[in-house]
Design a protein around this nucleic acid. Structure first.
Lengths: 107, 107
DNA sequence: ATAGAACATTGATAACTGTCTATGTCTGCA
DNA sequence: TGCAGACATAGACAGTTATCAATGTTCTAT
């Protein structure tokens, strides 16, 4: 469970809660990373290797790697190396709890 | 309707969609602004004036004003001036559609 | 062993962000 | 009319971020 608390509008977030959730949102709050999340999550098998992703952007491979690292370190993407390739997979739990915190009707 | 599209994991976000949604997340991706949203949304009557908010932080009034401006310009907070006081109110529609995009089961 | 391919890391740079102090703009009241 | 209070704006500064080119690492195949 990555986000912790009742929806935003029920009661004031504590400072600690806010500081815990904000980095998750920050990780997602970039057009490239949003598209990366969505590309990975909607890719066949629910996973994608870096080579599946780089081509979708006009950005260098190190830049994509950098964004993937941010998403992985925030807990939004899981990572698995199989042979030469590295596969990323969206953490649906993290996404769901974030969504619930922000706007979902109930938990 | 501020966010536009099916959940992240259903199909890849277009670049345009990502660039539309990212600023909303960016506005929310700060501990102070998260707490501001939550303070406003959970305040009695669903609204709060700046004077209700400034005291909750160890930050100057202009800094709070700055954060409120960012939330307002992104569409997450509505603003209404009544007399000397300025009241902010959370846009539940914006929050709900964001939540739905990120992780909610269905729309 | 060596070469090549896939991905990560490093170091540099320009742009952006959060914060402050100082100041401006309204509004209500005396 | 003028003052005081509530909020916004402007300008400055330090810290962060997105990007790239260059290089490092690790695996596979030959």
């Amino acid at each position: 469970m990555v986000a912790c608390c009742s929806p935003l509008s029920r009661e004031p977030l504590s400072r600690a809660q806010a500081e815990q959730v904000a980095p998750l949102l920050k990780a997602l709050a970039d057009p490239v990373r949003l598209r990366l999340m969505s590309l990975v999550a909607s890719h066949e098998g629910g996973e994608a290797c870096v080579c599946d992703l780089v081509g979708a952007f006009d950005l260098s491979q190190p830049t994509i790697s950098h964004h993937l690292k941010i998403l992985h370190e925030s807990g939004l993407l899981d990572r698995e190396k199989r042979g030469v390739l590295v596969y990323y997979r969206a953490s649906t739990a993290a996404l769901a709890s974030l969504g619930a915190l922000i706007g979902a009707p109930a938990g």
